[in-house]
């Protein structure tokens, strides 16, 4: 198939970016989106031009490294997949495809389509962990956990930290990510002792990183490749209120 690409090109963090148009010729429908970009890049390299820079690693939907906002939607229009799992058969011959970086001021562009998502790492470092000696894995069921809690913690833990929630949010809010990372620990007995401390620290770091505020439009949930539920956001709101109340009174 033959396509027209409208790609965001930006030489470096401080350079001005712009949209550049490229033809993508003879793309097999079985190619993944990233393979399509590989083919286009080979052509660019042959012509002595700078290839289009983009992030990727596992290319099997588990690492969260690939990004790209495709036609205005992070990871493209298909639900519940990452860009690396998106295939060209979902497009039509002759389509024009807009490819932009994940946009948020807290995710500054490094080059072309590559953005700096280390703000997420700083949020995790501020509280997304448990202060215990880990040792080897405990015996199964040595700590009894409700099926419901175990399921919800597991679903929250499915977050791969790709940042699509931020990129989809009209306010570049990181609430879905932060709430999932807080919930998967807060739901479990191991996470209880540091729950308040974790919630306060993660929310404060999130605010300090300059992410926007959630307006409950749920674009994040719709864009999430792992279908993380906004129930986690409701829970974080509740937990934050309780943590602030305890901090103020105790």
């Amino acid at each position: 198939m033959n396509l027209t690409l409208k790609v965001w090109r930006q030489a470096g963090p401080n350079a001005d970016g712009h949209i550049e148009t490229y033809p993508a010729k003879d793309i097999p429908a079985s190619a993944s989106f990233l393979e399509m970009l590989d083919i286009v890049n080979e052509g660019l390299i042959e012509q002595g031009e700078e290839p289009i820079h983009f992030d990727h690693d596992c290319r099997e939907g588990i690492c969260g490294m690939c990004s790209l906002t495709i036609n205005g939607v992070p990871h493209g229009d298909e639900r519940a997949i990452t860009t690396c799992q998106l295939h060209m058969r979902h497009f039509n011959d002759g389509d024009t495809i807009w490819i932009e970086p994940f946009r948020a001021n807290s995710f500054p562009v490094l080059k072309d389509l590559v953005v700096d998502r280390t703000a997420f790492d700083r949020i995790i470092a501020s509280g997304g962990y448990i202060d215990v000696r880990t040792g080897s894995a405990p015996d199964a069921n040595s700590v009894p956990i409700d099926k419901k809690d175990a399921d919800e913690a597991f679903e929250a833990a499915a977050c791969i930290g790709c940042g699509a929630c931020v990129a989809a949010c009209k306010n570049a809010s990181a609430m879905l990510f932060v709430s999932a990372k807080a919930a998967h620990l807060n739901k479990l007995p191991q996470g209880q002792p540091e729950k308040d401390k974790r919630v306060l620290a993660m929310v404060r770091t999130m605010d300090g990183e300059g992410f926007g505020n959630c307006t409950n439009q749920y674009e994040c949930e719709a864009a999430c490749p792992k279908e993380i539920s906004v129930d986690n956001i409701a829970k974080l709101n509740r937990d934050y209120l309780a943590a602030v109340a305890r901090e103020a009174t105790v």
Partner: peptide
Amino acid sequence: AARPSYAK
């Protein structure tokens, strides 16, 4: 202030 706009 948190979000630049997309071209598309």
